[in-house]
Structure formats: structure tokens, C-alpha cells
């Protein structure tokens, strides 16, 4: 098992913790975390792992920070 910190923003915070560390199985991918939190793939517009753009199928490592944003943003 490993631990990742998941930060959710904007409307994804509704009904969910905005900043929490989760225990997940080794070799889990970003999409596994998204599914675990009942987030619709279409509701994910910006996905960052440790501040870098990532895709859904990237494997996570222990201690990673995953930041997820819905389609929003501009100014």
C-alpha cells in the first residue's frame, strides 16, 4: 500500500474532502483515484501530479500529490 495526497478544487469539492491523504494499492494510477472518489472522467479538466500535467493512466508513487480541477478558469 502507499499514500497519496489528493487536492480537489472548485465544484469537485462538493460532497468531498478538499485536501486529504489516502491509502491506495501499489501501482495504482491516477484514474483509480478519480474512480475511488466517484468523480466523472468528463469532470476532470486539469490533472496534476506534483504540479506537472499528467494523464489518467500515469502510475502514482508513494508521497505523490494529485491536484484535480474541473473545467474552469481564466483571468
Amino acid at each position: 500500500m502507499m499514500h497519496v495526497r489528493v487536492k480537489l478544487f472548485a465544484t469537485l469539492r462538493i460532497g468531498r474532502e478538499k485536501d486529504k491523504v489516502y491509502e491506495i494499492k501499489d501501482g495504482a494510477k491516477a484514474i483509480d483515484v478519480i474512480d475511488m472518489l466517484n468523480i466523472n472522467k468528463d469532470d476532470v479538466k486539469i490533472l496534476l501530479i506534483n504540479g506537472q500535467d499528467a494523464d489518467f493512466y500515469e502510475e502514482l508513487k508513494d508521497g505523490d500529490v494529485v491536484s484535480i480541477f474541473p473545467p474552469v478558469g481564466g483571468g
Partner: peptide, 25 residues
């Protein structure tokens, strides 16, 4: 229909960018 102009900006204003820009470092 656009996420930014139809959802993000109306709900949060341009302030929606604070966390986006910060999370990118």
C-alpha cells in the same frame, strides 16, 4: 457550453485561477 465561460467564471469569478496557478507552482 464552455467550461470556463459557462461554469468556472460564473461560479467563482476570475478568482478560480488562484488554486490552479498555485498548484502548477
Amino acid at each position: 457550453d464552455n467550461g470556463v465561460t459557462g461554469q468556472g467564471l460564473p461560479t467563482y469569478g476570475t478568482a478560480v485561477l488562484v488554486n490552479i496557478i498555485n498548484e502548477n507552482g
